[in-house]
Write a protein that binds this DNA or RNA. Sequence first.
DNA 1: GTCTATAACCGGATAGAC
DNA 2: GTCTATCCGGTTATAGAC
Lengths: 205, 205
Amino acid sequence: MVNEISNTEEKIVKAAIVVFVKKGYDGTRMQEIADEASINKSLLHYYFRSKEKLFEKVFANVFSEVIKSITQVIEASSTIEELLESFVSTYINLLKTKPYLPNFVLHEINRKPSVMVDMINSKGENKIRLIKLLSQEGERNDIREFDPIQIIVDVLGMSIFPFIAAPIIKGFIFEGDEDTFNNFIKERAKHIINFVKSAIFINSD
Amino acid sequence: MVNEISNTEEKIVKAAIVVFVKKGYDGTRMQEIADEASINKSLLHYYFRSKEKLFEKVFANVFSEVIKSITQVIEASSTIEELLESFVSTYINLLKTKPYLPNFVLHEINRKPSVMVDMINSKGENKIRLIKLLSQEGERNDIREFDPIQIIVDVLGMSIFPFIAAPIIKGFIFEGDEDTFNNFIKERAKHIINFVKSAIFINSD
DNA sequence: GTCTATAACCGGATAGAC
DNA sequence: GTCTATCCGGTTATAGAC
């Protein structure tokens, strides 16, 4: 078979994702990745030559997975309601299983903006569809006039922020109580959908 | 005078804030702080003994400044409208001048959650006032029923997220165009205020 | 208090045996 | 492909002269 990936290589990438996503590039030790993968440190260099190369692999992997899941949602939706509901639900569900993810992407993107932005731009076709959908729906007369881009950022911010700021929200608002925080997250998607609907739709009650 | 702080010590802290906030703990080199402060590297150790100690000083400084500015706003407001308007405006203005700040706090808090959370909790009295204000206003009959805490997180997320995600928004949505992005930020506070108002107030039009 | 020199350590990377 | 041993550069931290 072509494209066959050795068991070891696969183990390395998996382990590297775990460690890099949690600790960031600078905070990650090659030894820790090796331990996580239960292999010898020098194998990391045998397969990926350098920490930087391994990191690039990890970042591209993680990022494209996120983009893929978002793209699917956008393509499957034909009204704003639908888009809003399925976007928020799938995105928050994704983050429930991978809470470190946004912090990782956002932190690393500040480290080497140029490289990252190149990568991001190579995945941007579905943006057009999104804008089109939003402006076409903007002609409906039961919708308040807001800048569609501001609304996209609103929804993203409301969805992602609780996970980025989890330690602060947990500690500061819920006084460290894990259960109330989890319940808050459980209700989050539903809340955002209702909140945004009552903001943009006239007579949504 | 008691409490007199030497000029050098002050210069070090200022420089350390700049570098730590931009590069994070792991990404920061003591040499870079020394350069930024135009002093000799060994003076950093003379005044603060270790990188870790210096960092703690910096984090406490930065964090308490943020808390102070938020507290002032909360204390000065007596209705939700007022609170919303002055909170969003002052917070976004603060972030315009210090865009790296949220990323720094949120990234470092994940590095050593226990230490950080202790620090955070030592500043939490104004939270009570905030909750009281929100639930008391909840009795007004021109307001839709939402969980006040969800709304606090909504507002925080909408305000902070554009700055955390600036490189992505700039690159992905505005195709790298600095001007459109700046304009987007300029409109941001106004938008959030309108958006939240039309979400929570019945007949806000 | 400030500087130069250097110690002590750590972590990424490589050589070479198996 | 995998392992052990080791190198080498960089970074924190300290010693000691001024």
